[in-house]
Amino acid sequence: MGLSLVLAAFSMGRMGPSFKRSRFGWPLGALGLALMVFLPEPLLAFEPGYAECQRLYHCRWDLRDQYLDVLIGSLSWIVLALLGSLMIIRGSSVYGRNRPRSVTAGWALVIAAWFLMSRMWFYEFIISEPFFILLGLIVLASMAATICLHVQVVRYTERKTPRMPKIAPLDERESRMVTEMIRRNLGGEVE
């Protein structure tokens, strides 16, 4: 539920200001994140102790601790990395005036992100078992192939969508109105 809300919030936020629901992106995302962190999920059907735990909310607190550890650790370094990168970009001379303080603070955040990441047991575990990296590469390849499939489906849908009828050209009055609007916005004289 929490993950679905976070994904929905991201999509809504990307819709832009012309859709009213884009305003709900941030609050919905915060709610989804709160659900992911604070609401324990019940045990899965094949996990040990599933039957005994059906009436309790959560029995395997060690698994939940691991999940929270990875989730919060990942979110921490990702937020630090994003903030740091943003400050470096804003402070660099590429996109405006050079601001050394902003760049220095940004680099401090980026280094902190790397430090946090290097302390996470999740990555230590993965590096110690290269087999998981191989499986991960297969998953990534599958994700790329599935994205291509979805793109093809969307292209097919667009091809099948009936085209709108051709609209009539502007009449004299509409032409004058458009010309006047452009003149007022851009300036200049009408010949």
Binding site: S4, I138, V139, S142, M143, A144, T146, H150
Partner: peptide
């Protein structure tokens, strides 16, 4: 692994 990739992307796309 192939199924995991398909399911993850499709779930995100559906939402």
């Amino acid at each position: 692994c192939i199924g995991v990739g398909m399911v993850t992307v499709s779930f995100c796309f559906l939402i």
